[in-house]
Nucleic acid binder design. Structure first.
Length: 593
RNA sequence: GCACCCGUAGCUCAGCUGGAUAGAGCGCUGCCCUCCGAAGGCAGAGGUCAGGGGUUCGAAUCCCUUCGGGUGCGCCA
């Protein structure tokens, strides 16, 4: 249950009443106002700006926003869960709830457990089913840390959307069709020769030098012996390419699995031209050409940079300018093959054809220049029915004690994701990747994330969960026969939770469903990480008060009823922490070791 | 030259799609804690929200512009 959403409905109903009286215009957009926690908690439990938002429309019947606010507040005050509703400032309405309502929220959060906060988005609006495409790293080597950020982000976003009540598919686009996979095949072939005892020396410029191809070469040697050695490249290329891509994808899947990431669909770019459907890209282009969106034409050379071999020629162009792009985009290379963009159009059309209406692509920030054309393409192939949101993930700067980490040469010129995961663990990697907005660069300090201190947000949040669990154990030690099942806790005398700190925690817990909805709607999983940090902080802070004021401690051996009520709060709190952490893919430990 | 992203406390960053007196951690200053609910606690100082204009009841948030940083700019993916 989401009290913010509930009161959004209440206020909308009151406004509708005023509309029916003819004192507000009939076409009033009732989604414009918000019900939110007030900045200052002394103002009350909820606040709405409704009267100010509709000030203009209300001018005819109401002298000022405050006048409209007064009328809304009057109606709100009649709701039985409302203790008080008063107008403040320029026209805010501050609502103070009866404690029974917050107690009800607490009770529900205990009884619903994992379902508290779930499914809110589905009730608010129909998002349709969502396709999240993330990682999509080229199958030419192990994943590096930058890939990891996109991977964790996409995975958490998918989990968040799913929790919020939308259908979600997690998808990986395998770029297995371009020139670089041929380079991969040639690189693997070098390792194949090496595995058969040849001295290959330095890997030639332009090929992939990394050691990670050695196993692939050895596998080829084991499978084909010396058979391929004397064949021309045209004979072995496809064979080697296919097996090597498979090996690379296995490696990538392992890297992802180490982060607990699993995709539903791996979509092969190659399948768009060589699959059962034949040349899908050609078909899509033909279709768009018939609609006048693809044409033959010339492009001006780009300004501000010199392209030496610029050749002014007529080419096949996608009319992306019609959908907001800066320039029309080529679909065919001069050698007659499709551009990457052409394939990507067909791929995104496939998503649309499979029924997705919200497409989310997670890319590295260096692909920012590609966003407009892809959105144009989605608009074109879906006839405007599907929306593409592209989430760009910025760089990750690896640090150790404040110093930049030197790049390892062992497996190329980057630090692999696997190295980092092995060093600091999944939880630290996932949480830190999400404890920042996706489009802000991220400083990741390998030393700090494993520290057990307040400075380390991963530890701080996990510790809150562990501390809560520890309270439960302590309570059972003090009252061995205590029934702490959710049913029993929900029946505790929750009105005993009268301390300011306890009330603050309850109000924060009541915000969880709203945080989920807002984060899901904005496609911003980092909000959950920050919310959890805030919740943990409030808990630790209240806990610390128990040092000077023993009467605030959760377990009170003299007062069984009070202890039970406080355990109810703890149970709700750890439930929300665990729920949020699960969305982020971070474990919620029962104790810190 | 053009497009996109970023610019908030000394540092690293939030700021709930336009709301009330702009927040957190680190660092800094002061006090408390060595009778373990202290893998610390409390309090305080610190801001031209890069600069300037605009939109309106109200702007860190939206628009324009300047400056500064990043990314990209047929036939790479």
């Amino acid at each position: 249950m989401n009290i913010f959403a509930d009161f959004q409905t209440h206020v909308a109903a009151i406004l509708t009443g005023i509309v029916q009286d003819g004192r507000l215009p009939a076409d009033l957009d009732l989604t414009r106002f918000v019900v939110e926690p007030p900045r200052d908690t002394t103002h009350g439990d909820l606040a709405t700006n409704a009267a100010m938002v509709y000030a203009k429309e209300a001018k005819a019947s109401f002298g000022s926003p405050r006048e409209l606010a007064t009328e809304i507040a009057f109606s709100l005050a009649k709701i039985e869960t409302v203790d008080q509703a008063e107008v403040a400032g320029p026209g805010f309405i501050n609502i103070r709830l009866k404690t029974v309502l917050l107690e009800k929220v607490l009770r529900q959060s205990i009884l619903k457990r994992d379902d508290f906060g779930r499914g809110g988005l589905a009730r608010v609006q129909d998002i349709g089913s969502v396709n999240v495409e993330y990682v999509s790293a080229n199958p030419t080597g192990p994943m590096h840390v930058g890939h990891g950020r996109g991977a964790v982000f996409g995975d958490a976003l998918a989990a968040l959307l799913s929790f919020a009540g939308t259908e979600v598919a997690r998808e990986y686009y395998i770029n297995d069709a371009g020139a670089q996979v041929d380079v991969l095949a040639r690189s693997a072939f070098m390792r194949y020769r090496e595995a058969l005892g040849e001295t290959i020396g330095e890997i030639p410029e332009g090929l992939y030098p990394g050691d990670y191809l050695k196993p692939a070469g050895a596998a080829l040697a084991a499978k084909y012996g010396r058979k391929l050695l004397d064949q021309p490249e045209s004979e072995w290329l496809e064979l080697v390419r296919t097996t090597t891509i498979d090996a690379m994808m296995d490696m990538i899947r392992e890297d992802l699995a180490a982060l607990n990431i699993k995709h539903d669909v791996f979509f092969s770019e190659r399948s768009l031209t060589r699959g059962a459907q034949g040349d899908v890209i050609g078909a899509v282009i033909a279709d768009l050409r018939a609609r006048g969106i693809v044409y033959e034409g010339r492009l001006p050379p780009p300004k501000g940079q010199v392209i030496e071999d610029w050749e002014d020629r007529e080419q096949t162009l996608f009319r992306s300018t019609e959908f907001g792009d800066d320039i029309d985009r080529p679909l065919m290379k001069s050698d007659g093959s499709y551009t990457y963009f052409a394939a990507d159009i067909a791929y995104h059309k496939s998503k649309v054809d499979r029924g997705f209406t919200t497409l989310i692509d997670v890319w590295g920030a260096d692909h920012g220049g590609y966003v407009k054309r892809m959105q144009a393409a989605v608009a074109a192939v879906s006839q405007g029915k599907a929306k593409l949101d592209v989430k760009l993930c910025q760089l990750v700067k690896l640090m150790r004690m404040g110093e930049p980490v030197k790049m390892s040469k062992r497996s190329g010129d980057f630090v692999t994701l696997r190295e980092v995961v092995d060093e600091v663990g999944v939880d630290a990697v996932r949480f830190m990747m999400l404890f920042r907005k996706n489009d802000a660069t991220l400083e990741f300090d390998l030393a700090k994330v494993i520290e057990q201190s307040r400075e380390n947000p991963v530890f701080y949040v996990q510790y809150a969960h562990a501390r809560g669990s520890s309270v439960m154990r302590q309570a059972l030690a003090a009252f061995p026969d205590l029934d702490i099942t959710p049913q029993a806790l929900a029946e505790a005398k929750l009105d005993l939770l009268s301390d300011e700190g306890e009330q603050g925690l309850i109000k924060l817990i009541a915000q969880y469903p709203r945080q989920i909805d807002a984060a899901a709607l904005a496609h911003e999983p980092h909000r959950i990480a920050f919310y959890l940090h805030e919740l943990a902080s409030a808990f630790h802070s209240h806990w610390n008060k128990g040092k000077d004021q023993p009467q605030l401690r959760f377990v009170n051996e003299e007062r069984r009823e009070l202890t039970l009520a406080r355990l109810a709060l703890i149970s709700s709190l750890t439930g929300v922490l665990a729920s949020g952490l699960r969305i982020l893919g971070v474990s919620a430990p029962l104790e810190m070791r």
